[in-house]
Amino acid sequence: MGLRQYRAMVRKDIVRELRTRETVVAMLLFVVLAMVVFHYAFTVPGGGDLSLLTGGMLWVVFVFGALLGLNRTFAHEKDEGCFDGLLLCPVDRVTIFLAKMTANLVFLGLIQVIAVPLFALFFATGRMATHLPAFLALVVLADLGIAALGTLLATIAMHTRARELLLPIVFLPLVIPLLIAAASGTSAVLSGTAGSGSVLGRLAFLLVYDGVFLVLAYGTYDVAIGE
């Protein structure tokens, strides 16, 4: 029952998105634009080496890009009272959280499938390929944290005034630890200077971060989703 509901909700969000393409296209354009902007913003006269900045750039781009999608998490539930329809269903509130989180995760992953190779082309040709498993592990764990925290906060923001403005204000300070770990981990992977030990430390940290916010969401979602 729970699984059938979960699948139905995820499928519904993805089918909707494939049909309207309103969120993913905007996210992708934003991410690519941000990369171009970063290139010009950070290029110094004489042409310095940008590779030390790549980890930070990549994750700033992804966190802000994800924010666009997170803001839309419940947007389509608002028209025609669909959110009421969802709450009327005999469904565990945590299942709603998991489904919404999955949809956010899928959209973010979709962006990254396109953006990461592009990023490698622009900024770090070749270096990504050599440490692919460590890099992928960082991406998966960081994405999970962004989606878990972001979905919880998007749920709260849904019932507030000026929710598109509120979400970044509450989301960004909470996501800073994740950003630090993912960015420094990615930089370590890309520069190849740090041993695998420091990357493992960051992976462990991300795992704990994900666990903490998943548990928090699990414990509070009933209240967060509202009456």
């Binding site: 770990a181 960051r202 940290f205 704990v208």
Partner: peptide, 8 residues
């Protein structure tokens, strides 16, 4: 968590 992360 933030304090710990800043140590990176």
């Amino acid at each position: 968590i933030t304090f710990f992360a800043t140590r990176f």
